[in-house]
């Protein structure tokens, strides 16, 4: 299965810009358990592409939104959030993935149970 387009979406900005060796002490920024668990729900995406395959528009919105939401929920990922969202959504469009029309098929098929609400969050951030 060719999943390289999903890799390209990550390349466009699906990360936190930190080099090895720069990190501060891990407990310096406290993050509430609920926040981490919320981020984890999005982070548990395995990149299988079932969301794209099940979507009548061929949209990679659930995949992209899961990464955006994972990183945006954590304090260390907030700083780059808007640039990340713009870059990733634009990349998704550029690669020819369709738009989301809220059919919800992706959420049904997702083996990791990732919620479609992440897409709403992504769109809200993108249009801000």
């Amino acid at each position: 299965m060719d999943r390289s387009a999903l890799d390209e979406i990550i390349v466009s900005g699906g990360y936190i810009g930190v080099n090895t060796g720069q990190a501060p002490e891990a407990n310096q920024t406290l993050i509430s358990s609920d926040t981490v668990e919320g981020a984890f729900d999005a982070a548990s995406c395995i990149g299988c592409g079932a969301c794209v395959a099940s979507c009548k528009n061929g949209s990679a919105s659930l995949f992209t939104a899961a990464k955006i939401s994972h990183l945006a929920q954590l304090p260390q990922g907030k700083i780059e959030h808007h640039k990340r969202t713009n870059d990733m959504v634009n990349k998704m469009d550029e690669l020819g993935f369709g738009a989301c029309s809220n059919t919800g098929a992706c959420e049904v098929e997702c083996p990791q149970g990732i919620s479609i609400s992440h897409i709403a969050f992504m769109n809200k951030s993108f249009f801000k």
Binding site: Y15, G21, P24, N27, L30, S32, H70
Partner: peptide, 19 residues
Amino acid sequence: IDQAVAQGVPFAREYSGYL
């Protein structure tokens, strides 16, 4: 652990926010 947290790895936390 510091590095992974900085990258956004969601390690389990206590309710107080500590790892």
